[in-house]
């Protein structure tokens, strides 16, 4: 090997030693701390924005534009006016996922809590419970009929379509919801690590070497790209939640 490039094993990038309560089920490590930080930040944003002033400033500005954004481009596009009751839930979900993601690019932390499967899986299960609850509450047992028998399917195809719809609604949806967030953040994290390792290795071998700038420039560009991905994934998670809840509440006729 020319520069003796050593890529750290993936377990070093994703598994962190316990900081507190090691060995117990309540062990706290870095992803858990980030999780708590995201929780506190979400809460703090809502409290900071709660002091209503006529001319908004600071946190209230952020919160008001976020409410507008979720209202216009998530709820009105997927559920319509009736969906406004879910605004607090979707807003909290959006900010929580966003804060969990954005730690990916914050200097000295640089780890997205959502790149461990636990948090996306938990959020996806929560969304699964909520949309099924909404469907059952609004339609009772007819909810299963709504899910499994889409309108306008020819009779011979019905058993196959019903099976596919059942599996896709109750199993594939939460799975893909969790995997989408998890895999995006994991891929982004690995990408940043790859270019950071490349930059560091080239720097060690010869700081004056001209090519050392190439991976560094790419690293900076990718950091910007990852900020976009963090925002986009939070948005997509929220909008898919809205689509699932809307679909359960108002099935197609």
């Amino acid at each position: 090997m020319l520069f003796a490039l050593e890529f750290p094993p993936v377990s070093h990038l994703l598994e962190w030693p316990d900081i507190l309560f090691g060995g117990t089920p309540f062990a706290i490590n870095k992803p858990v701390l980030i999780f708590f930080a995201a929780f506190v930040l979400t809460l703090a944003l809502f409290f900071a924005a709660g002091k209503k002033k006529l001319v908004p400033s600071g946190a209230q500005n952020v919160a008001e534009s976020a409410v507008n954004f979720i209202e216009d481009s998530v709820i009105m596009q997927t559920m319509g006016r009736d969906g406004m009751v879910y605004l607090p839930f979707l807003l909290t979900l959006f900010f929580f996922v966003l804060f969990c993601n954005i730690f990916e690019v914050l200097p000295f932390i640089q780890f997205p809590a959502t790149s461990r499967m636990a948090i996306p899986a938990f959020l996806a299960i929560m969304v699964w419970v909520i949309y099924n609850f909404v469907g059952l509450k609004n339609h009772g047992l007819r909810y299963f009929k709504n899910v499994m028998i889409p309108p306008g399917v020819p009779a011979p195809l019905l058993p196959l379509v019903a099976l596919i719809e059942f599996v896709s609604t109750f199993f594939v949806r939460p799975f893909s919801l969790a995997v989408r967030l998890f895999a995006n953040m994991l891929a982004g994290h690995l990408l940043l690590v790859t270019f950071a390792v490349l930059t560091a290795t080239l720097w060690d071998s010869s700081p004056l070497f001209a090519i050392v700038w190439a991976p560094f420039v790419v690293l900076i560009g990718l950091t910007g790209f990852e900020i976009l991905v963090a925002l986009l994934q939070a948005f997509i998670f929220t909008i898919l939640t809205a689509v699932y809840i809307g679909g359960a509440a108002h099935p197609e006729h």
Binding site: R180, F235, I236, I239, L240
Partner: peptide, 8 residues
């Protein structure tokens, strides 16, 4: 909005 859904 629909585009992002399709992409997802």
């Amino acid at each position: 909005t629909t585009m992002f859904l399709g992409i997802a």
